[in-house]
Amino acid sequence: MNWSLEQRRRLAAERTFLAQYFPALRWVDPAGNTAIEGDLRTNAGNVYGVRVVLPPDFPDSQPDALICRPRPLPTLPGFSLHLTSAAMHTLEGDGQGNVRICHYSAERWAANISLYKVVMKVRFWLEAYEGHLRTGQSIDAFLKHMR
């Protein structure tokens, strides 16, 4: 994938901004199949590996947000994190055991939405996920549905 000059400028700005707030995240293959990955730690101190994969037409399309570690991501009986589910705010898995989480729909995505906001949504999803494990409630008991 070859990023256009305009895309490269955008990615440079995103990189600077993300480094301020999520310094543990690193950029993978910045000239090709670009992704951002690294660890996010919840307030409980648990560490999750996350990956945000940029589509070739970024920022016109939204990135994929994945939880990669632990794999499999444990859940409670009767729940799945690998299916398309409004209750769990997940999309169908990527076939490699990673959990694809819902952040912005294609309809609600706009080119000016920053990767910082996507990562922050992942961070909130992780707190909600731990709330799910603690209470047995689905993740949408903690996260509002986008209108």
Binding site: H89, L91, F124, K144
Partner: peptide, 15 residues
């Protein structure tokens, strides 16, 4: 970061 939580999360409809 409140506004990021408040705008909500996409709730997909299964196929």
């Amino acid at each position: 970061a409140s506004s990021i939580a408040d705008e909500g999360f996409f709730g997909p409809v299964p196929r």
